[in-house]
Amino acid sequence: MSCQDYEALISDYVDGDVDEAQRASLESHLSTCASCRAVVTDFSVIRAATLTLEAHVPRPDVWRRLSAAIEAEPKPFFGLGGAYWWRALAPAAAMVVLVVALSWTAGRLSPVATERLARVATGTGSEPVSIVAEYQLAEQNLTNTIVGLERIAADDRSTLDMETADVLQANLTVLDGAIGESRDALQKEPENDVAQQSLFDALRQKIALLQDIIALINEMRKGNQEGAARIVSGLNQ
């Protein structure tokens, strides 16, 4: 074998990643080849020096810039892999998109939502049009997410034992009550920010609970008692 053939082995040798036959063959070659011996020595020196490299520390302004960038990020409404529904709404195009969105969604919303959207579209509300309309679209997106999750959860809920299913249903019923109350309050006072935020909070909580239910069903189906217990523990908190 030539030096070139052995060269490929030298890195493995320095890493202690050769078998006995390779080691014996290479060491026999090294005993007669100063050039390859020098490579082994240099690689060992480099390996040793690499272990002494000091840790670099990020500068404080990295966190400052990062926290400012996060602050500027739109807040997640979905919790499903970071779906930000309004990311597409660049500021300059927001109103154009909004007009299209209003006319497109008007026929799909509940009667209450349609009424509120119509009022927004005609500018009879006291809040800026874009804010109120964004609320409507956000609510509709949250509701759509809930409908999808409910469908998934309903398909496999028989996997859960009766007692667990009852407890989860009771929690869902409480959240549905909170959602209903918030919507009632908004129907009476459409610009009530507290009611609006309560509605969003309840919708988000319902999404989180449905996600946990689906995760729990998956763990039960896999027979992963540990995973299921962890999810139930999280639910209890």
Binding site: P58, V62, L66, A69, G81, Y84
Partner: peptide
């Protein structure tokens, strides 16, 4: 380089912030 590392670290955490849902 440090300058690129600063930007990369910020981007990594910003990306993580968006992806934590997954």
């Amino acid at each position: 380089s440090q300058a690129e590392a600063d930007d990369l670290l910020q981007d990594v955490f910003l990306h993580a912030h968006r992806k934590l849902g997954s």
